[in-house]
Amino acid sequence: MSNAITIEQRARGALMGAYIGDALALGPHWYYNLDELQQTYGPWISDYTEPEPGRYHAGLKAGQSSQAGFILDLLVESLTDQGQYNEAHFCQQLDTKLFPQLDGTPMQGPGGYTSQSIREAWRLRVQQKKPWGQVAGLADTTEAAERILALAIRYALQPAELARCISSNTALTQYDTTVMAMTVAYGCVLGSLVRGEPLDTQTSGRLMTLVHDGVLPFHAVTSTGEQTPPPGPEAPRQVGQFPSPDALLTASCILQAATDPDIRIDPAWKASLVYGMPCAVYHQFPAAYYLAGRFQGDFELAVLHAVNGGGQNQARAILTGALSGALGGIQSIPERFITGLENHAQRQKWAQQLGQQAAGK
């Protein structure tokens, strides 16, 4: 990994990589029959495509975003406007710009499809008039991860604040603690890449050091420092602290598999079959870690293998795109992916602003 890549470039690459991954999977989204996917789009999807009539996101054009991209816009716009994470401002964005376009059904709203957790939040917030903080649901998807990646970028140099903001933002729409732990862990990994750390078998160890030092909110059996340890075998768990650090350990386990010559997934898009094609976090995060780790320095291959794997390839491509874009910086992203993306000029401006905020400028 080149030290010549700046934090700003990594931040810009991460954000644009997420947008690009989302848009690349818009057409071929949710094909669980891979023969059907290849019959429709050919043996290898290499660029933006349009959804087929009657499919998810039908009517949208190549290069446009799903609702995940729309919501990511709202959070990024809030961050760049406020200069920091202002949860009340972001919630107002959802109240005024997203929810008025929804009706509680799946095939409605920006991007042509509304996820389970957003539908549930809409129902509780709009129909039942509940306040924010009481509208989260139990969906086990990466819905929150697809937006909190902006917070991981913004607070890459402030890991404690990164974890706090991501935990709080995730809890707006998802309150399952396993989902929250895995989402925060993904943000911690992404933040480490933005600040210039490698994605390797030591990634989890570096993050665990932050756990032991009390920076990240994961429970660990042992702790470092000179404090006198409490009675018993381990420190007591605090409110808001995840019960185990296992979500942080996933990345390096996956990277060990990706670099082990005796373990090979060929072609690499079949990682979707190994880790699972569905939407749940425990399928999506491992596949993203694998593809970003295997194709380090090659944004195009990492993201296109995520797309060509079928199933919930949109989430897989968003998560992979952010990781890979952070690893290689904005300069690693092919120009055609940037210019072919809807609203790319505004998004590049936001990415630059977010990168400057991340770097403390």
Rank of each mutant, 00 (worst) to 15 (best):
A4L: 10
A4P: 00
T6Q: 07
I7L: 15
E8S: 10
A14V: 03
L34D: 09
T40M: 02
E50T: 06
S66A: 14
A68M: 10
G83Q: 09
C91F: 02
L94S: 00
T96G: 03
L98E: 02
P106T: 14
S115K: 05
I118A: 11
R123S: 13
V126K: 13
W132P: 03
A145P: 00
R147Y: 11
R154F: 10
L157F: 06
A160H: 11
R164F: 13
N169P: 00
T170R: 00
L172S: 01
T177E: 14
T183D: 01
T183Q: 06
V189L: 01
L193I: 11
R195A: 04
P198C: 06
T203M: 08
G205M: 05
T209F: 01
T209N: 14
H212G: 07
D213N: 15
L216T: 08
V221H: 15
G225T: 10
G232I: 03
G232T: 05
P245W: 05
L249Q: 13
L255S: 02
Q256G: 15
R264L: 14
K270T: 08
Y275A: 09
V281Y: 12
Y282V: 12
Q284V: 11
A288R: 02
L301E: 13
V303G: 01
H305Y: 03
G309R: 08
R316T: 04
T320P: 02
I333D: 02
F337C: 12
T339Q: 14
L354A: 01
A359S: 15
